[in-house]
Each structure stands twice: as C-alpha cells, then as structure tokens.
Nucleic acid binder design. Structure first.
Lengths: 216, 216
DNA sequence: TGATGAGTGGGACGATTGACTCACTCTCAT
DNA sequence: ATGAGAGTGAGTCAATCGTCCCACTCATCA
C-alpha cells in the first residue's frame, strides 16, 4: 500500500515529466489534436481531450500554446503542409495508357482513403472549419491550390509516361480531377460502397483519358 | 411613455405570443435552425441562437422539442426531404446535344449554389454532422441515394431529349455526375472562382457526354 | 363571463468549456 | 551537489451550454 508513493516517484514512469523542447511539445500536441479531430470531430477537439490524447497535463497546453485558436491555426497549417496525400504518385508504368495511369493514381488515393477514413474526414472538417474562420480562409485556398498542383503534375507525368498529349490545358483537367476525387471521398465516406467507388474510378479515368490525344 | 405597455398588450404585436399549433412551431424552429447553421455553422446552432432567430422564447424550445438532439435529427430529416436542389431540372431543349443538356443542368445547379452559398455549406456541414452521429448515418446515406436518383433521372431525360443512348449504365454515370457536382461545390466554396467553375462544368459536360452514343 | 390551458418570461441548475495561476517536483548543466 | 528552470498537479475563474421550472398572461370557448 505504502509502495504506491514509491512508484509515483519512479523516474522512468510513463506519466513522468517528458523533458522536451517547446517546439517538439507543440508538434506533439498538434499530432494529438489531429487524432482527436479524426475521432471526435472539430467540436470534440477540446483542450482537455487534446492533452489527454497527448498524455500531457492540461497546464502544458497553455505552456506550449497561447490559446486554443493558435493550436487550431497551427493544426490547419500542419495538415496543409504535411498532407501530400499522394493523390497520384508517380510509378514507372509498363504498357501504360493514359487511362491506366489515371486509374492507378485514383486507386492509390482510394487505398489511402480506405486505410484511414477518419483522417480524410478530419481533413474535410478542418476545411469547413477554416472556411468558417476568417483568419484561416486563405489557408483553405492554399490547400486547394496544392491539390490542383498535385493533380496537374500527375496529369503532366501521365502524358510523359505514355507519350500522349492533352487536348485541354492541364490546369482545367486538374480541376476536374480534384473535383472527382473530392466527390469520390465524400461519397465513399457516406456509403462505404467499395464497388461503387471502383466503378466511379473506372468511369472517371475513362472520361478524362478521352481528353488526351493518345498517339503522340 | 406610458403607451409602451399598451403597445405590449397589443394583440397583433410581433413579439406577442404566437398562438400556433405545436407542429407549426416545430417547423418554424427547424427553419430557424437551418438559417443559423447556414450563418454560424452547426456548432453555432445553440438553442438560444435558434430561438432568437425564430423570434421565440427560450422556453418555447423545449415546449416544442424534448431536446436539441431531437431538433437536429428533425433538421437533417427536413433538409433531406425538402431539399431537391434541382440538380438538373428538365427543360425542353431545342437543338440539344447531350453535352448541352448536361452543361445546362450543371449551370442551373451552379446558379443555385452562387445564389445561396451558405445554404449549400450548411448542407455539407449537416452531412458531416450526420456522419458523426450514429443515429443519423442512415439519413446521410438516404440523402446521397436521392442525389443519385436525381442524377440518374436527369441522365435518362437527357438521353430522351436528344435521342442518344448511354453506353454505360446510367447508375454508374450518375455516381460520376454526383461526384463532380460535389467536388464543384466544395471547390467553389473554397475559392469562389467563377471562371474555374465554368471551365470545370464545360469539361465535365464534355467528358460525360462522351459516354453517350449521340446518333440513336 | 369565467375557467381552462396553450404559450411566455425570466430565471436557475449543473456540466463543460477555454483560460489562467501558483506552489511544487524533478531533470540537467554547471 | 546544487541552483535554475522546464514541466506538473490541482485548483479556480467566468462564460456558455442544454435543460428545466414555475408563476404568469391571454386567447378561446363552454
């Protein structure tokens, strides 16, 4: 019974003070916040829930951040900066058609979505949150600019890999590709219908491939 | 000065007790709640904010609803039931191609989006809310089923109007159309870029039209 | 006309929230 | 070893939340 206090003073206890620089502590809190948002939504991301997820004391929160708003701003910044969801990561393709390269890219994103649905749902909610917060609206725009750039790069790469030429500016096609991906995400999150998602990706790849001149 | 009390007791005063059946009061509260959600988001839709928007007393809230959850449930039900956003409303089309009919439908939806952006943003947030609320998840699915049906009807109609034949099951194309519309919505809400939206609709209409055999 | 009850007004409740304080502990460089 | 300060624990604070209550008003109808 009396040994409890001895345990409490143990130096290697998990709950014992974690000596870490403030910067590291901030990122730890941001990571925890992202997990909380994924599990309980933005409204569930209270300071107490976040520090609990991070395994820290409530006092540590305002030790690292001046306010919850500051953390949320940093969180949005973080996901924008570090979340290159690899929409269409390049992969040297054998016997590739434009359609297949596009289809592969969509599949790769979809796999990521299925693997971590809460993550992607958190991204959607954070976007909504950013739109509702005047200070963060520009960040939401930047996020979508990144999406467009990624889509554009993928389209350019797809053309290079297959020796095809886009009949329409890649920027416009990129917008379509991002829209389809967004729609795919929301739709799957609602219905969790893998077959429908597959059919959608097939069709989208077909349709968009039609915008390329296949034989260079 | 003393006439104020006289005014207060006036029977036709706006603030005076509105003798209305409970059912009517419920719908009034739901309408108010939708406006509040559109303006301040789901998290801003507090009981006090809602009754203030409805011009009612706080006590009237729990007189008409047993809890805030019940109102939110009814709200989600309401928007699903009554929000036929007229995705692609039929319009007898002269010299119509499949592409033009599709493009027209998208434009019609887009006009609605531009006219009431908050409304559509509220729909997105309510969908998220429904996904986070186990009791309401089935409603979110039903909402998307409606979207798919509407899209399918529009596709069928487009084919009938132009005498074209879809080379792919309309159900699959409907999924693509809904996805594009969803993506268009989110993208425009973030960037408010009308020109990009126009280009996107052009391209989407082109791409999807390719899935039809134009000459029957 | 007088009783009835639908609807209101104003306040109160307990819980939770973000924010803040401060005495204290324990690590680490010196 | 010892002082400095990073980090904690426990608590407080005001604000706001959903919910509830009850005395009161007033239109309605027997």
């Amino acid at each position: 019974m009396t040994d409890e206090t001895v345990m409490t003073s143990s130096t290697s206890d998990v709950k014992s003070p974690q000596r870490m620089p403030v910067a590291e502590r901030r990122t730890a809190l941001i990571d925890a916040a992202l997990r909380v948002v994924a599990q309980h939504g933005v409204s569930g991301a209270t300071t107490r829930a976040i520090v609990a997820e991070a395994g820290m004391a409530l006092a540590s929160f305002h030790y690292a951040f001046s306010s919850r708003d500051e953390l949320m701003t940093e969180l949005v910044n973080h996901v924008i900066e570090h979340e290159q969801t690899a929409l269409v990561p390049p992969l040297p393709h054998e016997a590739a058609s434009v359609r297949n390269v596009l289809r592969d890219g969509l599949q790769r994103y979809f796999d990521h979505l299925v693997e971590e649905p809460e993550r992607e749902q958190a991204m959607l909610e954070l976007t909504q949150y950013a739109l509702r917060t005047p200070t963060l609206q520009s960040l939401a725009r930047r996020q979508y600019d990144r999406y467009f750039e990624m889509a554009r790069d993928s389209l350019t790469l797809a053309a290079e890999l297959t020796g095809a030429v886009w009949r329409v500016p890649t920027e416009e096609i990129a917008h379509l590709l991002v829209a389809v991906t967004d729609g795919l995400t929301v739709g799957w999150l609602v219905n969790r219908d893998d077959a429908a998602a597959r059919a959608l990706m097939d069709l989208a790849a077909d349709s968009i491939a039609h915008l390329a001149e296949e034989s260079a």
